[in-house]
């Protein structure tokens, strides 16, 4: 049985946005690995997306604030762990859809990634490195727009 406090903590976490991709929540991106609730405390374990991402500390602080509001009176601790490794497979369907609305193609292990603007598969990878550690730069030959792609990450 899911208690009331569990529901409100997970709802609070599901409202924390990624500051660099504000259409996606950390739940959609699969950052939330574990939530442990006792009578005195709430401990949340998150997985970092890219290790050098400067938004991580901001995400941690935002998550702590959100959980504190959802669990008044309890001590709240949010920390990052490297195990298991975060992979782009952890992004859920809502997250993938939200990425598209933000102009970022969801991560795909294929050369021709559909253009998030017109949907064409006639696209190329311009550079694996983009404006943030998690994004690449792509180009659509059909609608002639440059766009960004979320970099696939995993042990493939």
């Amino acid at each position: 049985m899911v208690s009331e406090i569990e529901t409100s903590v997970s709802e609070a976490l599901a409202r924390v946005k990624d500051p660099e991709i504000p259409v996606c929540t950390i739940t959609d991106l699969g950052l939330v690995e574990r939530v442990q609730i006792s009578d005195e405390a709430v401990e949340v374990t998150l997985l970092p997306t890219f290790v050098g991402c400067p938004a991580l500390e901001e995400i941690r602080v935002d998550a702590e604030r959100a959980v504190r509001e959802a669990a008044p009176g309890r001590e709240v601790r949010v920390r990052f762990t490297f195990s298991p490794p975060w992979t782009t497979d952890r992004i859920n369907e809502a997250g993938r859809e939200a990425l598209k609305t933000f102009g970022i193609a969801p991560p795909l292990l294929q050369i021709a990634v559909p253009c998030p603007i017109c949907g064409s598969l006639d696209t190329t990878l311009d550079s694996s490195f983009g404006p943030t550690p998690c994004r690449s730069i792509r180009y659509c030959n059909a609608c002639r727009n440059p766009f960004e792609g979320f970099k696939p990450k995993g042990e493939f």
């Binding site: 050098g52 991402c53 490195f129 983009g130 550690p133």
Partner: peptide, 17 residues
């Protein structure tokens, strides 16, 4: 510019590592 982003991004990764 693409290479500028690549070098900067790799540098950021390495410092993060």
């Amino acid at each position: 510019v693409e290479e500028d982003l690549a070098m900067s991004s790799i540098a950021q990764d390495e410092i993060g590592h």
